[in-house]
Design a protein around this nucleic acid. Structure first.
Ligand SMILES: [Zn+2]
Ligand SMILES: [Zn+2]
Ligand SMILES: [Zn+2]
Ligand SMILES: [Zn+2]
Ligand SMILES: [Zn+2]
Ligand SMILES: [Zn+2]
Length: 440
DNA sequence: GAGTTTGAAACT
DNA sequence: CAGTTTCAAACTC
């Protein structure tokens, strides 16, 4: 795999992105509408593309991509409009200015000049416009470009930068997300069961239509009559409905019996029907922590399987737990989080730095900020991994080239189209970040 | 789908 | 309270 090292692409000069925040906002607004539709189309009804297919598809693109890179390089370098004697390229996390003749590469500091650092990162273009360019050139029906970018980020990033992938595949089944949402308690939804963390083999793709809330998982009780806490329906304070239980008494037909059972359970444990996951006092600012009230007592699962109620609820184990050899502590799951995203993104280091600076900031006028949480995923840069920056850049370059090929190439049009594309990319990043945080 | 493993709930 | 049994779900093959 030493050959994909390249990632070298050129950018026509500096690709603008100068002020005009109005345009940006407008673009963002517009994108919002379009993007939403795209998202629905993509997520709402799972596309027929299963993951294998997705991967294959991507590999295909990657391949084309490499070819394309060279084409682009030559075309741009050769006949390109009166470009300067250099172009920009990205390698890993760094932007280089490359002389067309000598080939000398000069690293560029992101902070030079007055421009925002983001500018340079965005400007630095790179490998193939999977989104637009490749499909076009290859005659592949121009698919929904909006979906493309993301896919490229998902699989592509992994393949290119070696380390564990950062991004989930877009079409990952979020199946069976949140369950247990006791309507009785206004405390809010209490996620309890999440079936899989990792993408499944896709043996049975497409099953639930809307995995989201509202669809409780049916019980399969045999001997409890669904009148003991063994039964999840009963434990959730719900009647059995569309369950597979035998001899179910957790229904209106057995209301008396049921009431008695509730009473009994309540005697045994007054908190029996309270949500097991309590919303702890908000730490920091807008971050509500959820913790298991009555800790788990795991002995063999290391709290790393759904046998563990803490793990199942995606909350860390606490001192309330009496688990043995727990691997679900706060730090454990934070490390996990890192691995998932990190993928050697230099930006992650900025994270730590930023956190430190912030915590030791001289501006201590804040009142109760004693225990401010780092929580990387709350920070924008957390999502600006190499892959993301790269993919975004690709999109911008692709957009630029497409626009360039247009008949009447107006400079203003160019700027607009690129900003527009940028807005779309941003929105996509946000959406996917949201999704990511939603399931993990 | 059958069989095993697991830990909460129930029971003593 | 601790130790044991029961139970349905999570998991494995
Ligand atoms: Zn039941
Ligand atoms: Zn039920
Ligand atoms: Zn039932
Ligand atoms: Zn546990
Ligand atoms: Zn625990
Ligand atoms: Zn634990």
């Amino acid at each position: 795999m030493g050959d994909h090292v390249v990632n070298e692409e050129l950018i026509e000069e500096e690709v603008i992105i100068e002020e005009q925040p109005e345009d940006v906002m407008a673009a963002l607004d517009q994108m919002e509408a379009e993007g939403a539709d795209a998202l629905l189309g993509e997520l709402g009804e799972d596309e027929d593309e299963d993951e294998d297919e997705l991967v294959r598809h991507h590999q295909q693109q990657q391949h084309h991509l490499q070819q394309q890179q060279q084409q682009v390089a030559s075309s741009s370098g050769g006949g390109g409009g009166g470009a300067a004697g250099h172009f920009y390229a990205i390698r890993g996390n760094q932007v280089f200015k490359i002389d067309r003749f000598s080939g000398a590469a000069t690293p560029i500091r992101a902070t030079t000049g007055s421009g925002a650092p983001l500018k340079l990162q965005v400007v630095g273009g790179d490998a193939g416009k999977q989104q637009v360019f490749v499909p076009q050139a290859q005659g592949i029906a121009a698919q929904d470009s909006k979906a493309q970018v993301f896919r490229s980020m998902g699989a592509g990033g992994a393949a290119q930068h070696g380390p564990p992938a950062g991004y989930r595949v877009v079409s990952q089944p979020i199946a069976s997300g949140l369950n247990r949402q006791p309507a009785a308690y206004a405390g809010g939804p209490v996620p309890t069961t999440v079936t899989f963390t990792a993408p499944k083999p896709a043996t049975k793709k497409r099953q639930q239509h809307h995995p989201m809330l509202g669809h409780r998982k049916p019980c399969n009780c045999n001997k409890s009559l669904c009148l003991k806490l063994y039964c999840e329906c009963f434990a959730n304070g719900e009647f059995c409905r569309d369950c597979n239980c035998k001899d179910c008494h957790n229904n209106l037909e057995h209301e008396n019996e049921r009431s008695k059972a509730i009473k009994t359970s309540l005697e045994r444990n007054p908190s029996a029907f309270k949500p097991k996951i309590d919303f702890m006092s908000a730490k920091g600012r807008s971050d509500v922590e959820r913790l298991h009230q009555k800790g788990c007592h795991c002995k063999k699962s290391n709290c790393l399987k759904n046998y563990c109620e803490c793990y199942e609820a995606k909350v860390p184990c606490t001192d309330r737990c009496k688990c043995c050899s727990c691997r679900n502590t706060e730090s454990d799951r934070q490390n996990k989080m890192r691995e998932k995203f990190n993928s050697a993104s230099g930006l992650l280091h900025l994270a730590a730095a930023a956190a430190d600076i912030r915590s030791s900031s001289p501006f201590s006028d804040d009142d109760s900020d004693v225990d401010e949480k780092p929580d990387p995923k709350a920070m924008p840069w957390f999502y600006m991994t190499d892959e993301v920056v790269e993919a975004t850049t690709l999109c911008l370059v692709a957009q630029a080239e497409e626009q360039e090929a247009a008949a009447n190439a107006d400079e203003l049009d160019m700027e607009r189209s690129i900003l527009r594309e940028f807005g779309r990319c941003l929105q996509q990043i946000i959406e996917n970040a949201a999704h990511m945080n939603q399931e993990q």
